[in-house]
């Protein structure tokens, strides 16, 4: 344990240790009881039956789910490739000294940070056809995620740029660089490295958003899970497996973010700015 927590406690004396020992046993029993209750609930309703779980040991079915995961990751990566540079440009635009750049960027960011991704998906899925145009399913998913994602990522970049020492931009203007030159040559290169962990967290948010493929019937992991649940008649088992797959991927990305953060231990000032720890724009 780090932080204030250990300082808050006295070192437990003999009586305290006894109490902790008793509490440990009681808590362990209570948690075990809860787990047993959950398992019983599965068993009573016949959801532990072998034929309900057995499909997930078969390669074709696992491969079907893994293909869904691959498509999820594809959507996520495509959205990241579009939304991250867009977010950077929006953030810099929002900080620009020129009002006709600053205002549109600010309006875009505030607008798309305030709208749920799913509402935008319905605009593409239902609104556009009603007005006589339509967009392929895949883009009905990607474009809304990119719109809200780039707005969220813009705020991450903006926080990073604002956290950079003023002396950097002042020195840049002293040697005669223009605004975009300053940003491109001086600010962005310094900001990207410390922001890397936060951008990885944003990748998790994009992956979470990609579950909206469930709505547009794009065969990413959650929608594949839905089809599979109907096929094998085991909804709760399928969705649990799907949830586990998402958890594994997100956990791996989190580990990577921590590793990157540790490697950059000398720039701790971004630690507290974990804006991204909040709920993601849409799933959030």
């Amino acid at each position: 344990m780090r932080g204030v927590e250990p300082v808050l406690f006295d070192r437990p004396g003999p009586r305290g240790r006894r109490r902790i020992a008793v509490a440990t046993v009681v808590a362990a029993l209570a948690l075990a009881g809860l787990a047993a209750l959950a398992v019983r609930q599965f068993a009573v309703n016949g959801q532990l039956a072998a034929d309900k779980w057995q499909p997930f040991t078969q390669w074709p079915i696992l491969r079907f789910l893994l293909m869904g995961l691959v498509y999820s990751l594809l959507v996520t990566l495509l959205c990241a490739v579009i939304a991250m540079p867009a977010g950077a440009v929006l953030a810099l635009g929002r900080l620009s000294p020129r009002a006709y750049v600053r205002w549109p960027a600010a309006v875009f960011v505030e607008l798309f940070r305030s709208l749920p991704t799913l509402l935008l998906i319905f605009v593409f899925l239902l609104g556009l056809p009603a007005m006589g145009t339509s967009v392929p399913t895949f883009w009905c998913l990607v474009v809304p995620i990119c719109l809200t994602g780039s707005a969220t990522i813009a705020e991450v970049f903006r926080a990073g740029v604002l956290a950079l020492e003023r002396g950097q931009t002042e020195a840049a203007s002293a040697i005669g660089l223009r605004y975009w030159q300053t940003m491109r040559l001086i600010v962005l290169p310094q900001v990207i490295r410390p922001l890397l962990p936060l951008l990885l967290v944003q990748l998790i948010n994009l992956l979470k958003d990609s579950t909206l493929g469930y709505v547009v019937t794009y065969a990413e992991l959650l929608y594949s899970g839905k089809s599979l649940a109907e096929f094998v008649h085991a909804p709760i088992q399928t969705y649990l497996v799907v949830a586990a797959l998402y958890m594994i991927v997100n956990w791996l990305i989190t580990r990577l973010a921590h590793r990157v953060e540790r490697r950059q231990g000398r720039v701790p000032r971004f630690r507290m700015r974990r804006v991204a720890g909040t709920v993601p724009a849409a799933a959030e």
């Binding site: 808590a27 948690l31 609930q41 599965f42 009573v44 309703n45 959801q47 998790i204 992956l207 979470k208 579950t211 909206l212 469930y214 959650l222 839905k226 649940a229 909804p235 709760i236 969705y239 649990l240 799907v242 949830a243 998402y246 958890m247 997100n250 956990w251 989190t254 709920v279 799933a283 959030e284």
Partner: peptide, 29 residues
């Protein structure tokens, strides 16, 4: 338990959780 809870529920997408709650829970009564 607290650690496991946070790790699990921060990593799962909200929509997956909602699908589980709405379409999964009835199956376990």
């Amino acid at each position: 338990f607290g650690w496991l809870y946070v790790e699990a529920f921060r990593a799962v997408p909200l929509l997956v959780l909602l699908v589980l709650c709405v379409f999964g829970l009835p199956w376990i009564g």
